[in-house]
Write a protein that binds this DNA or RNA. Structure first.
Lengths: 160, 160
DNA sequence: CTTAAAGATGTATATTTCACACACCTTATT
DNA sequence: AATAAGGTGTGTGAAATATACATCTTTAAG
């Protein structure tokens, strides 16, 4: 179990695309908007593209846009997609064949380890919260404000 | 947010001490029982000791024992103690002064980032599950079996 | 059909974090 | 004093992360 900036970038990219749903956005624009590494973001975005969360288009006038409606993008799915071991409690992996743990008399708790069960349950509760949320839920509170702000930006800095 | 073997060792140590509550146990014994590094376990145990979860005694006939009754040892507290950033959603830390994120036009979502809220809620759900569990809950299912097994071990391998 | 813009991909590197080893100190019992 | 136990600090190897760099492919504009 883990949460890295990789997932952070993924979620922020989706939010950015949701806010600017009226056009295609370049990777560079997203990177600059958040002040993060463009090179790294490329991989995140590619990964999101292969997962169907975003639609990428190469070439001139290409760019990114959401692959589905915000209502159909479940935050839990995104996290599961970007954090590989979110589906299982791998971090605590005990009593797996071939592991050091096997030494000695073996795990005292093997054969029904409650630790695993409790941690699994906690993990489930974590994901359940994220599964209840869609991108649309995250976008809703900002819709008005951000759109206004975007309009201002367009006025202030016309397309180069 | 993160779960490491550090916490794994901590929980297993507590379980071991709970099972062998009739006597003091040495660090070496715990390390050998699980086949893990004694050197590393020393630090985990020391940390648990400073947190009051276990009682350590130096010198001859010294060793470890639970610092409180198993019913009074909350699993959530243990995890919070061993995983430093469990109390907050530090991994996603956005819009903190001095961070790179500040570049460009600043975080579009600053001033009420819902990402933070949702992740915080998910985190809360995770910890809530662990907060409902005490060490006694984890020990209960094994009490009979493990004690029996321990007795057998004593018969099979008398003290060296 | 050439060129430029945009994403795709592979390799390399820098940093951080773990897990662990090693050496040495302190405490307490015998 | 000697010995057995925990306490403490430093160092290290491996792995995971985040990022940089270089190059290729696709697409549309001119």
């Amino acid at each position: 179990m883990r949460m890295t900036v990789y997932t952070d970038y993924a979620l922020r990219t989706l939010l950015y695309l949701g806010v600017h749903a009226d056009r295609r956005v370049s990777i560079r624009e997203v990177a600059e908007a958040y002040g993060i590494s463009e090179n790294h973001l490329v991989k995140v975005i590619h990964h999101l593209g292969r997962g169907g969360f975003i639609d990428t288009l190469r070439g001139r006038n290409g760019g990114l846009m959401l692959g589905r409606a915000p209502e159909d993008i479940c935050i839990g799915d995104v996290v599961r997609h970007t954090e590989e071991d979110m589906a299982l409690v791998a971090c605590m992996a005990p009593s797996m064949p071939g592991e050091k743990r096997q030494a000695g008399a073996g795990c005292l708790l093997a054969g029904g380890c409650h630790l695993r069960g409790v941690l699994g349950e906690a993990m489930g509760a974590f994901m359940a919260v994220l599964d209840r949320q869609t991108l649309a839920d995250l976008l809703r509170p900002y819709e008005r404000r951000v759109l206004t702000q975007a309009a201002q930006n367009v006025e202030a800095a016309p397309a180069p």
